[in-house]
Nucleic acid binder design. Structure first.
Lengths: 237, 237
DNA sequence: GTCTATAGGTGGATAGAC
DNA sequence: GTCTATCCACCTATAGAC
């Protein structure tokens, strides 16, 4: 992160080697991610990770400083691009809309698309890895003592603010209190879908196809849109 | 579980002692639950649990056989009653409805009420414990190698089947494929709400009150009901 | 930057006295 | 049923040679 001098840059001049991109740091991140998905973050020992990476046990401490820092790096590497893209998509929509509010459906789509694109990956192994990453994020979010929770929340912060503002404009008649609650319900539905969509396949005995990411996305957006637009309830206090 | 002989029964004749219910087994379960919530399941060592319980390290192995068995017992003890009550509430609704379909709102309410009742506990410490239990359940569900996942799924199985059937009757025009997907979205919204409702308070800068469990429940049910009843999307394959 | 060796600690489990 | 003492596997982290 603070690696501004990039002392490795002068080494790999070989074009073939540059194509393979097998720098230890990256290989370690890949291996860690794979193992986190397979056995869980806590249970993935540095010994197992470095073995998987074909690297030395001490290399993790050289490149990251600690296991916790490695964990954080794994999450930051994935979540950064996704959340940046969410914000960029929304920005583009707002530019197109000019002084109008962005349509609800478009906002929701911009929110889920960057995640769903990962799940839709052509390579089944990559798609599976994406599902497991989503699962890891939910796991991290529900582990208050875990080292990844903070990263996930920080990476999500700007997304949350921007999309809440956009939703407030798209749903001008919805009381702010309802907006916050419904945003929360929406995040829950989406997180559970991204992390456990395979469950729908077994729940429906194969009728629903979790690999049909586009269909899943459309259904999810439709469900959430209907929920957001529903009537406000009278809440007696 | 297979404790049919109950060899302890002959011991505590004292009425005062019976009221306190301080049998080691139960004390261990309480202590474990408390520690799981505080530091996470994996990070709660048997040493810390038995210290918290005022019991001996070896007592866990005597009463449960292993740490994994203790973990499973903690979850089973809580989830059993909740899920049994969900089913009972639904059964009662169906008896009242006779040959009619149970109204959607009532079905949803029966689904969430037993969970929300825990969160609404008068004692703030108990209410907090309930939130953390919900968080533990979500955590367990997202940890494929964890010993609690299987228990959670097994305890939920009958609930799932019963409520899916009831929803199918309440929403006769909804294609089955949509029903499965929307049920999944619903579970996600509810799980995230039960486990992380405190986030809404900080998200809304205090405007939303996560302690107002009744208001939260009504909003959640309204959101999900609107989502379930929304129009089916045309999905191109 | 990589690797070996090892320090220093904690974990779950169990044998056997009481 | 309870408790002590102990086994042994495994972990992260680091020092220091190359």
């Amino acid at each position: 992160m603070a690696d501004l001098t990039t002392p490795e840059a002068q080494i790999s001049e070989d074009p073939a080697e540059a194509g393979i991109r097998s720098e230890t740091r990256e290989v370690l991140l890949d291996a860690a991610e794979r193992l986190f998905a397979r056995v869980g973050i806590e249970r993935a020992s540095l010994r197992a990770i470095t073995r998987e990476a074909g690297a030395n046990l001490a290399s993790v401490h050289y490149h990251f400083g600690s296991k916790d820092a490695l964990i954080q790096a794994v999450f930051a590497r994935r979540l950064g691009p996704i959340n940046r893209e969410r914000v960029e998509l929304l920005t583009r929509l707002q530019e197109e809309a000019g002084s109008e509010a962005v349509p609800l459906h478009d906002i929701l789509f911009a929110f889920v698309e960057p995640v769903m694109r990962m799940l839709r990956h052509r390579d089944p192994a990559e798609a599976r890895a994406a599902h497991e990453l989503a699962r890891l994020v939910v796991q991290a979010l529900n582990d208050p003592e875990g080292p990844a929770r903070e990263i996930v929340l920080r990476e999500f912060h700007e997304v949350k603010e921007r999309f809440l503002a956009a939703l407030a404009r798209a749903l001008p008649d919805l009381p702010r209190e309802d907006l916050f609650w419904r945003f929360h319900f929406m995040v829950g539905a989406m997180a559970h879908t991204a992390s456990s969509s395979y469950m729908v396949a077994q729940l429906s005995d194969g009728l629903c196809d979790a690999c049909d990411v586009d269909g899943m996305t459309e259904r999810l957006v439709a469900f959430v849109a209907a929920g957001l637009q529903g009537p406000s309830v009278e809440v007696r206090r």
